[in-house]
Amino acid sequence: MNRLHYLAIVTVVLGLLGLGGVVQAADLVSKTEFAAENEIIVHFSNPVDRTQAADPGRYVVFEESDPDIRLNISTIVVSENGREALLTFDEPLNSAKTHIVKTSGIGGVAESSFSVSKSYFGYLISILISALLINNFVFTKYLGLCVFFGTSKRKQTAKGMGVVFTIVIVVSVSMSWVLFQYVLRPFNLDYLQIVIFIGLTSLTVQAVDTVLRKVNPVLFKSFGVYLVLVIANCVIIAVPLLMASNGYNYFETFMLSLGAGGGFLLALYLMSSVSERVELAKVPPSFKGLPIAFIVAGQFAMAFLGFSGLQLF
């Protein structure tokens, strides 16, 4: 995993992000996107007749969930080369919802319909960022604190715990998702959520334990002790519960668990860095140890409050 690999990954990610709304139906339109608050830009694959494209009567636009409510187009501006049309609406658009645009008689195509939505990949990244920063499980949701305070004294332990935790959470939440979608939901067994999720977590921990012991005993020696602590971590049960209550699909669940694990690692790392310094500071004797750790965590929590309402995509 050298620099070139990293670069390649970053380029692919940025490329996917720029995809915007990838068009499904016709070949008429190559790309659609939301522009300002009340604008949609349509990119045609081939230049189209400018008078046709500028006629609001040829467009029908509505939100996917409300097909009977037609949105009023106030003006249309078509670019010089006939490849772009800027539709401006009376009211601001709710860009979080998918919109459908139907055209008739533009560019030689009798009828075509295509959707406009924010990049799905952007949405996935926003789930990741949300779990990582905005709704950080330790500093914003106050979960996993026991383990957090126990392993945040040294940078080494913090890193170890964080990595092990991320791996376990991604694996166990994926399995939980499968069971939830294909067993619990169809059979109306929602109330078995708690048992199933905690059971799968224990299973994962056990499996990782056994595998690690056999495959890489050296790694096991340094990380094995954290495995037991994973079960006692509130986050590990909170993530599948969140997944269940939001009804995420697989990719969203994956992003959520990655973000949760990453957020935990971040929190641990930040905390341990401060912890190491606090040990050398003059702390009043009654506050040594946990009390001062709590106060530091409180300050971090206040800092993370600043991420509230962050919206990247």
């Binding site: 500093f139 914003t140 106050y142 009043p284 009654s286 506050f287 946990l290 009390p291 001062i292 750790a293 709590f294 106060i295 965590a297 409180g298 929590a301 206040m302 409050l305």
Partner: peptide, 13 residues
Amino acid sequence: PSAGFFVVGLMMG
């Protein structure tokens, strides 16, 4: 929410 940390920390101390 962040006050929880402070209150618990202070009370423990």
